[in-house]
């Protein structure tokens, strides 16, 4: 059986979601091709204006994931999402509600409110969030189609700083968990996939590499490797102390 990723009833072969915000547009197609990405995010506030339209640089068979960056509260996120749909970006939307210009950390509470409204309007809602189990459960209840926790602050390339909390989401929330921000290297993407997340999103790490096409490929391979490792089941990993060679329960006798 094919190992497909299903989000909101749509199926994807690739588990690599490409963020487009920091690229030069001329490279977009090569990055998408090399990375095998089937879903690409799109900052609506950047789209549909100026001399170059980002939509012209994204192949038609790619699923667009417009985001609501620039929204400071639920109401603004809802407005941007509707605008995206009106512009023909489809039903997927990534909710980003950010109320802090310094760290760009997401506002989980406002995000939950936006999910409630947009999921009722038929959007396939993928919220960017701070990895908090309680908030993730509420997002699932509100109709989210996937949960996108941050691995580290946006653009920091610091990797899986929130590793343990993302693992909790993987274990407890019955939706695709997609690591959204902070992934700086293919090895970190691989590690996230080994942990059991469903997909990884990356942007800065690729956009700022010297050879973005090759880095895109590296992410593709790392994500595939991590996925296979997860499916295979990681073997015995030695912890700090070696496992005891003689059994701890060998003294038991079978008598009552």
């Amino acid at each position: 059986m094919a190992d497909e990723l299903s989000i909101g009833g749509r199926r994807f072969n690739s588990r690599f979601i490409l963020g487009s915000g920091k690229f030069s547009l001329e490279f977009m197609r090569r990055v998408i091709d090399n990375g095998g990405a089937e879903m690409v995010t799109l900052a609506l506030r950047r789209a549909n204006a100026g001399k170059e339209n980002i939509l012209d640089h994204i192949p038609k068979d790619i699923t667009l994931l417009p985001n609501t960056s620039g929204a400071r509260n639920a109401q603004e996120a809802v407005r941007i999402a509707r605008l995206a749909r009106d512009l023909g970006c489809g039903d997927f939307v990534k909710i980003e509600v950010i109320n802090d210009s310094k760290y760009l950390l997401p506002d989980n509470q406002e995000t939950i409110k936006a999910i409630e409204i947009l999921s009722k309007e038929g959007f396939i809602v993928m919220p960017y969030m701070y990895p908090d189990l309680i908030a993730a459960r509420r997002m699932a209840d509100a109709g989210a189609a996937a949960i996108m926790p941050l691995g580290a602050p946006i653009g920091s390339n610091k990797g899986l700083l929130t590793r343990d909390f993302i693992k909790i989401l993987v274990d407890e929330v019955d939706l695709p968990i997609i690591v959204d921000a902070g992934i700086g290297r293919p090895s970190q993407a691989c590690e996230a996939m080994e942990m059991g997340v469903s997909a990884v999103m990356a942007n800065t790490a690729i956009a700022t590499s010297n050879d973005i096409a090759m880095m895109s490929k590296a992410f593709k391979l790392a994500i595939e490797a991590g996925r296979k490792a997860y499916l295979a089941g990681l073997g015995r990993v030695l912890e700090k102390e070696a496992e005891a060679s003689s059994p701890l329960t060998g003294f038991l006798e079978d008598r009552s």
Binding site: S24, R45, R46, A49, G50, K51, G70, L83
Partner: peptide, 20 residues
């Protein structure tokens, strides 16, 4: 200026904002 930005390997951005 647009051409210069492209020549430097950067991306000119005309809008990065949605008025609310």
């Amino acid at each position: 200026v647009h051409t210069m930005i492209l020549q430097r390997g950067l991306q000119p951005v005309y809008t990065d904002y949605i008025r609310m």
